[in-house]
């Protein structure tokens, strides 16, 4: 009997020194890391999640230094696996992220533009290290996957793209509904239905969480391993702890963390 736990994840969107709110992939600045700590007590949020995602959503090709220093700093407050990504275009891009405290690297556009790089990343760091991000939105032609921060639509049905990504040397698929992103209307069942049966890798779903109850529906599906929110306003501070308790009550198999114990361990040696 193998019983891997379901995971509740939180994503931070970084853009040039600031953290952002995203709605249908349109970005709005919220504040810098000091502001995040002061107003939203990120340390508390980190006590209630199973994994953290930090994405560099800066448009264009900016210097990675600022992003890397934020990944390092967030690592100090967060004793769960960290996935970092955004703009990864080379093995070296991935290496510096992994040397800055990331455990896994998220890739999106290169899945489409550079499959050879995907193979190269897998052979260098192992496929378990690669989180394949797939962004999906509805169009007049049905659901389509988009890359390059949602700006480029792929010429095939989203379900076909998902099946193709599933055969690549990757460790997990991170599936986001652009239509629900930041809306707080709940996860998108229509997008979940695009996932091929017998997906050989774990599936993380994102886009649409607005309250604790929203996580239960996707997490109760067998094929979904994790649900993620990037909604800073709705889910920082105590609200992820509350969501966790609610989900466990609803029978979702999450690990029970002990935030008080973790706080008590600070400076204990």
């Amino acid at each position: 009997m193998t019983a891997l736990k379901k995971r509740l994840m939180f994503a931070l969107l970084y853009d040039g020194g600031n953290f952002m709110l995203s709605r249908n992939f349109r970005l709005q600045r919220v504040g810098d890391i000091e502001w995040l700590e002061r107003n939203y007590n990120f340390r508390e949020t980190a006590l209630s999640i199973d994994e953290l995602v930090i994405l560099n959503v800066e448009r264009g090709r900016a210097s990675m230094d600022g992003f890397l220093s934020h990944v390092k700093r967030l690592n100090d407050d967060c004793f769960v696996p960290i996935t970092a990504g955004g703009g990864v275009r080379s093995v070296d891009d991935a290496r510096v992220l992994l040397r800055s405290g990331a455990d896994k690297v998220a890739i999106n556009t290169v899945l489409w533009t550079d499959p050879a790089l995907v193979a190269g990343l897998a052979s260098e760091f192992g496929r378990q290290c690669l989180v394949a991000s797939v962004d999906v939105r509805s169009t007049a032609d049905g659901h389509r996957a988009v890359v390059a921060n949602g700006t480029e639509e792929l010429p095939m049905p989203a379900a076909e793209w998902l099946s193709r990504v599933a055969t690549m040397p990757i460790g997990e698929i991170f599936l986001t509904s652009v239509d629900r992103d930041g809306t707080g209307q709940g996860f998108d069942d229509a997008v979940l239905d695009l996932v091929p049966p017998d997906l050989p890798v774990p599936l993380i779903v994102a886009g649409g969480a607005g309250k604790a109850e929203h996580f239960a529906a996707p997490l109760q599906r067998d094929e979904v391993g994790a649900a993620c929110t990037a909604h800073l306003f709705n889910f920082v501070g105590q609200s992820l702890a509350t969501s966790r308790a609610h989900l466990r009550g609803a029978g979702v198999d999450l690990v029970e963390w002990d935030p008080d114990l973790l706080r008590g361990l600070a400076g204990s040696v």
Binding site: K72, N75, F79, S100, A266, G267, S268
Partner: peptide, 12 residues
Amino acid sequence: FSVASALRYLGA
């Protein structure tokens, strides 16, 4: 990096 962060948190 992560191992070092955990050690610092514990006070080592």
